[in-house]
Amino acid sequence: MSKPSNTSLYMERQKRKRELTYYLVSFFMMLLLTGLSFAAVAMKGIEKHFTAFFIVTLAVIQVAFQLYYFMHLKDKNHGMPALFIYSGAFVAFITVLAFVSIVWIS
């Protein structure tokens, strides 16, 4: 194996700097979304169903940050991982939907 050239090392370093920014921005976004969720629940007098819808939406956005930035799903060569995780998420969603709308548990 040959040693990488100076230019490619430089480009690699620049890329890493950009990645670090992405990570930090994602982290603070996730922290913000978490804070918003807790604040929405801590505040009284908001309609219950609205709060539920709001915080579940925030959770989905936060998970997208986690998957795409922290777990690199945004990077190339992540077609199969995306297929696997979305298949899993689809089955999980259908299961949750069925059990939330179930009518014969009283």
């Binding site: 298949s87 899993g88 998420a89 089955v91 299961t95 949750v96 939330v100 548990i105």
Partner: peptide
């Protein structure tokens, strides 16, 4: 990642059970 897809299903069933009960 295939394993994580499976784990998603596992937790999906546990969440579904919890939400129903």
């Amino acid at each position: 990642w295939l394993f994580l897809g499976g784990e998603t299903v596992l937790f999906g069933t546990l969440f579904a059970t919890f939400l129903a009960l």
